[in-house]
Each structure stands twice: as structure tokens, then as C-alpha cells.
Amino acid sequence: MKQFKIWLPIFSTIAFAGCAHSLHMTHVSDSALSHAEYSKSKAIEARSEQFSFLGFTTDTDYVDQAYSKLAKSCPNGSIEGITTEYSTDLGFLSWTNIVNMRGLCTMQP
């Protein structure tokens, strides 16, 4: 019983910590950058979140917000090699959906 009291908090900490963050999917787009273009390009990032309590969410507009943020951070160039991550941070009876987009901004000659 004494050992159980010691191991229970340790086990529950590991168990709950393991579920705290969940990566659902990652997508990497193609990139046609040459070595010279790659070295000149600038890394950009856009992130958007949606808080959800008990799963009640009426839209998924936060994804579109991340997209427009990424496009605005490179207004006159092309964005290539985009990595899109969709993940969830879990909390007590609630969670936060996160979309993170990273890419390379290259200016056209």
C-alpha cells in the first residue's frame, strides 16, 4: 500500500503528461528552389489557435487565418517548402487546436 502511494502520483504524471500534446498531422509541400535561391530565402511562420470547451466549436476559420497570416508575411514573393502542422494541446475538459505553418519566402528576380 505504501509503494502504491508512491507510484500512483508518478504513474499518473507520466500518463497525463503524455496526453497533454497531440500532433495529428504534418504536411510538407514541394519546393523548386535552387541552392542560391534557398540561401537567399527568408524563413517565415504563421500560427493560429482555437480554444474549445467540451468540443463545442462552430467553425474552423482559424486555419484560414493562419493561411492569410503566412501570405501577408511574404507579400511580394513566393512561399515554398511549406510545412503545415495540426496539433492539439489538451487541458481540463477543454483543448486548444493549433495550426502552425512554416515556409521559405523568396523574392522573384
Binding site: 504536411h27 509541400s29 474552423t60 501570405a71 512561399i79 517548402g81 511549406i82 495550426v99
Partner: peptide, 18 residues
């Protein structure tokens, strides 16, 4: 009421002319 959730998202290279 409806509950919306995302299954997957993907993005291809964004052009300079939009």
C-alpha cells in the same frame, strides 16, 4: 448546434501573384 473539427490541412507553395 453544430460542432466543427478539422481532420487534415495541407498547403502547397504560394505564388507571388495573388
Amino acid at each position: 448546434s453544430s460542432c466543427a473539427s478539422i481532420n487534415s490541412v495541407s498547403l502547397t507553395p504560394i505564388p507571388p501573384t495573388r
